[in-house]
Design a binder for these strands. Sequence first.
DNA 1: GCTCTAGTGATTGTTAATGA
DNA 2: TCATTAACAATCACTAGAGC
Length: 435
Amino acid sequence: MVKKKYKIGTCFGCQKCLYCGIDLEKDICKCKKAVKPTRKNRTVLVKNAFPRAFDPTTSNPKQFDFVKNKNEHFQYGYDLTKSIQFSLCTKCNSPYQRLSNSSNLTRKTGRTKRAETTEVIDLETGSSEVSTVTQSESKHNDSENDDDDELEMEIDYKLVIKQADGSALLAKNYSVTISELDEFLLAIQNNITALLKDDEINANDYNISFKSEKAQGAGTLLVDVCDFKNFRLEYVKLAAAKRTMLILVTMKKKEKLVKRKKKESNSDDEEIICDELIPKGGNSNKILKLNGLATVKEPPTHPSFGYTHPSKNRSQSNLPQFSNNVQDLINPIFSTLLQALVTPHFLQQSSSSLTSNNSIVSQSSQSIPSMAEFLRQIDEAEKTEDYYFNFLEGFEKQRIRVKHLSKLNDTQFEICGVTAVGDIETIREVAQKYK
DNA sequence: GCTCTAGTGATTGTTAATGA
DNA sequence: TCATTAACAATCACTAGAGC
């Protein structure tokens, strides 16, 4: 029987992801749910999470019932004769704590209870990872991996990355042990970013499908849990038949990029983008007027504009100083694509040449300011001193660049530490200039 | 309609354990 | 020894519902 493996990064009581807050009963996320939530890795979306140590010998009966009920309800498969660790969201933590308090009303002080606890605790808390303990584990001796065996599967697959023009560029064999769709998707994403050497590719940039290596047709999309169930069934069949599962990654928007590259190659010297290297201070006004067209030096990095591209009119209105001829040639969506092709890597490699080309930048091309400059510009415009600049750390942590800002949703802004609606709107508004 | 109260979610405080 | 972390306890803030 398949049991739902509990992960310590989710709420034991309600299956909420303790990083993004998504209800995992209804949805999936890509958070690292195997990582125990601590004060250091808290997110804005779920500010508090409560690690809990459950010990059947010392927990009060009501808490025991709580754990037992959740264990049964979500079919975690814990052996409740053993101590376990889990995490709770604030919502579940409150009642859980009160269960403890209610028993204390009889009334021990909390401290007395704690003292008793420390006397009895020994058990098998040993395993520091503790995030998963299943009934099978109790039956199967102490093999460390046994707890994963019920759900986790080792998937051997061949990954093929297919460009939108139909050409399959890369194929590589991988093996990954996963138990859930999101883990698998994450693994594939890691494969893609590694193969393409592009950290900024995200899940919206491609479709994933699967099929037998020898099968004809496009395969089956791997999108949701249903697909994943189907995938597992298929995989088991293929594995039994000693056939290889093919994971097909179809990149989106490639044709536009190809066009772009052609255009870029023809106009390299007229459009140079500089994300980080624009001299601070004196040129800031010029920077604000630039529209963000770029020279292609690397493959596309973040084509998420595919699903959030802005309105054409707005884009056009934000190209004030750029050559009208070029604007006519390149429509606004195109210019978004152009921006997406610029990477810091390029900037590092070409810093000297770019510096020497500053005159060109200031004359005929547009550039995106660095995040620091961008935030300072807002502060200057809003007369807020360092208020917006203080968001720099949050953006840097998430590797957000100016070109990404107009595509971020509210949640993503919050993850970066920008929570006030007004701040988000202000940043978005200014960022429109650099789409 | 108002007030009171219980319930709930969220936050903060305290203490022991642990590691540098 | 000091700083950090984990675990638990206490408290705050808000809401809904009952009673008048």
